[in-house]
């Protein structure tokens, strides 16, 4: 109990310190609007990657439809705050987005989560595309041309807090009864089943939590960038999130943070390279995969428990 409190306080200090560091850097002008944009993009990508990592890395379900749920959140927020641009409605819209994303995840997950591996990937990809095509053809969403001038409520502090909240939810879920059940499903479905674990229920739980966090990221994206179009949420976006997860390490939340940050910085640094940028990006991606096949962090996590007790062999729990 005491020890847990110590680690929790460490994480809290880290989060608060990060916030004030960012604040200070903006005040003294080290972080300009270009860099702020980079940091916020990284933050949104962290939310997306952490949620997808829960589904792929911890529950072991290969989903390729993350962008579809992101779209749900993005459009819920855009539509609601374009009508009523108040902070209250903005926060309400996040909740509405999350609820719709959960419903969508249930509709998609209940039939498809009985599929395995690549078949699940391709089915969830299809489902996400269906969501996107529906949005593409709706009046309320303004069809293919998307929505503009969305009021900006998602400033960097809001995004920062959302990164912390979603990560805490996901990490704490992983290190609880449900998360352990999901891990068992990843490791061996038949053994989990025989140990009394409702395999389908925990797969679905992880999938739904992942979808809910994706919706939050979508809300942030829509209200920070202020314009969205259905094409922002296509297969390529799902793949971009997958790349962060695999690059960081499947099953490492720390890895998702690191990879999202590195890719965000690389992307910003390559802005001036024009058309060559994506070629370099592609090469870097291939090389990292060849030389570090398990991703930057493997399945390792940053852990205060381990920092304080270097002898402990446990790969660490964030809590």
């Amino acid at each position: 109990m005491k020890a847990n409190l110590k680690y929790n306080i460490c994480w809290l200090i880290l989060m608060v310190a990060g916030f004030y560091l960012m604040n200070a850097l903006i005040l003294v002008g080290v972080i300009d609007s270009f860099l702020e944009n980079m940091v916020v993009t990284i933050g949104i990508n962290i939310i997306l990657a952490v949620g997808l990592n829960l589904v792929i890395g911890f529950a072991g379900q290969f989903s390729l439809g993350h962008a579809g749920f992101m779209a749900v959140g993005a459009y819920a927020t855009s539509i609601m705050i374009s009508k009523t641009p108040t902070a209250g409605v903005f926060y309400l819209s996040i909740i509405v987005g999350v609820i719709i994303a959960i419903i969508a995840a249930l509709i998609v997950g209940i039939p498809t989560l009985r599929l395995r591996g690549d078949y699940l990937a391709i089915a969830t990809m299809g489902a996400a595309e269906i969501i996107r095509i529906i949005i593409n053809n709706m009046k309320m969403t303004n069809g293919p041309s998307g929505m503009f001038n969305i009021p900006q409520f998602a400033t960097w502090p809001v995004v920062y807090i959302m990164v912390c909240v979603t990560t805490i939810i996901v990490v704490n879920f992983i290190h609880s009864r449900g998360g352990r059940a999901a891990l068992a499903v990843r490791e061996d479905e038949i053994a989990a089943d025989s140990m009394g674990i409702n395999v389908f229920k925990w797969k679905l739980a992880a999938f739904v939590i992942g979808a809910a966090t994706a919706a939050v990221a979508g809300s942030m994206q829509a209200s920070y960038v202020q314009t969205i179009a259905p094409n922002n949420f296509n297969i390529m976006e799902s793949i971009a999130i997958l790349i962060i997860v695999v690059l960081g390490g499947v099953g490492s939340i720390t890895g998702s943070f690191v990879a999202a940050t590195i890719l965000g910085i690389v992307d910003a640094a390559l802005q001036s390279f024009g058309a060559l940028r994506m070629v370099i990006y592609a090469l870097v991606l291939i090389l990292i995969m060849i030389f570090k096949p398990s991703g930057i962090m493997g399945a390792k996590e940053l852990s205060f428990k381990r920092l304080f007790n270097p002898k402990s062999r446990k790969a660490g729990a964030k809590s």
Binding site: I56, I239, V246, V250, L283, L285, M289, S294, G295
Partner: peptide, 15 residues
Amino acid sequence: PRITALITAIGVSYF
């Protein structure tokens, strides 16, 4: 891991 090879294939595609 197969997912690594998949990401590499995506990298080749981008390339």
